[in-house]
């Protein structure tokens, strides 16, 4: 399969009074058609910003975003408008991502209306079909978001994203606001839709177990940089970067006999306004060497598409 989307040296700085917030700092990756790239990291690592940059909900400071070989980072307004049919987003919060003053039917049908697809009647039928596709009864057409629970609201958000039959969807923490039993339903729905509609996902999440479950490849971000990226299972069986190891070890597991060792990082994430020199993780790294604070380790292939940015990993 070819790369559906390819990101090269993507940078996003947000200017604030104290300087620039280095939200995304020189990030490159590619996603193959029909696959899922999981982007994990803690709050403030730039994973959500990356997702929004990809579909140009925010403008990149520099870098290229190639969609089927076409650079969309510099696309004009007209091209961008047409691109909306191809790329969609599912949001984290099923409460704030739906307009409280619009019925479910209106919300799902809005993209169709914007792109002038079909007559009003045909659009309503399309909405019914979409609702069934995501497991919502079309009876709920006239319901308002506040009348639904979180799981069903999230299904509405998914139906809206699917309405234009996109190829690529950014899933921005789509299950982290949901109850565990509902989370699993939505994850399964996303997987089934991926199979039936040949979708490509960028799956942004802080939850490693969820990302592992749904992704083909995983990229771990720390302070605006990708520190490790590898095929999903490889990352868990052969974790190389100390930050990824810490992240993995920190996940509490509902089991009596945990196999992994405890590995607790000290301190918190430094400010993204003046990120640490050299390797951005060196302030918390248990393996820190002299070179780490001076030189930034490049993201290099360690075989089998397993990329790591660490001086220690040989």
């Amino acid at each position: 399969m070819a790369d559906l989307i390819k990101v090269e040296n993507l940078v996003k700085y947000f200017p604030v009074a104290a300087g620039n917030v280095h939200a995304v700092d020189d990030v490159s990756f590619a996603i193959k058609e029909g696959e899922t790239l999981g982007l994990v990291g803690e709050s403030g690592c730039g994973k959500s910003t990356t997702g929004r940059l990809l579909i140009r909900l925010i403008e990149a400071t520099s870098g290229r975003i190639l969609y089927r070989g076409r650079d969309i980072a510099s696309a004009d307004k007209k091209t961008l408008h047409d691109m909306r049919k191809e790329m969609q987003i599912i949001f984290q919060d099923p409460f704030s991502s739906l307009d409280p003053r619009k019925s479910i039917g209106e919300t799902i049908g809005k993209p169709l209306e914007i792109f002038g697809m079909g007559s009003k009647r045909e659009r309503e039928e399309m909405v019914d079909a979409l609702m069934e596709k995501v497991g919502l009864s079309p009876r709920l057409f006239y319901k308002y978001p506040h009348e639904l629970d979180g799981g069903r609201r999230q299904r509405v958000g998914i139906a809206r994203a699917l309405s234009l039959s996109p190829s690529f969807i950014v899933c921005d923490e789509p299950v982290s606001a949901l109850d565990v039993s509902i989370q699993a339903q939505i994850l399964n729905l996303l997987q089934e839709l991926q199979e039936t509609m040949k979708l490509t996902y960028l799956f942004v999440s802080h939850d490693l177990s969820v990302v592992k479950h749904i992704s083909n490849r995983i990229a771990v971000m720390y302070l605006g940089k990708i520190v490790e990226s590898s095929p999903s299972l490889e990352l868990f069986s052969n974790t190389l970067h100390p930050y990824s190891q810490a992240l993995l070890a920190a996940v509490p597991i509902p089991k009596l006999d945990r196999k992994r060792e405890r590995f607790i990082l000290s301190g918190g994430v430094p400010s993204p306004i003046n990120p640490p020199s050299g390797c951005r993780f060196h302030t918390r790294c248990p393996w820190k060497m002299d070179i780490c604070s001076r030189e930034e380790p490049p993201l290099t292939d360690r075989g089998g598409g397993h990329f790591v940015a660490c001086h220690k990993v040989k």
């Binding site: 019925s103 039928e125 069934e132 009864s137 079309p138 009876r139 709920l140 006239y142 799981g151």
Partner: peptide, 20 residues
């Protein structure tokens, strides 16, 4: 109604719950 992904096609337009 959320149980299965492809719920039986229970209703067309006329069976929608009323507007409130």
């Amino acid at each position: 109604e959320n149980g299965t992904l492809f719920a039986p096609s229970s209703g067309r337009t006329k069976e929608r719950e009323k507007r409130r």
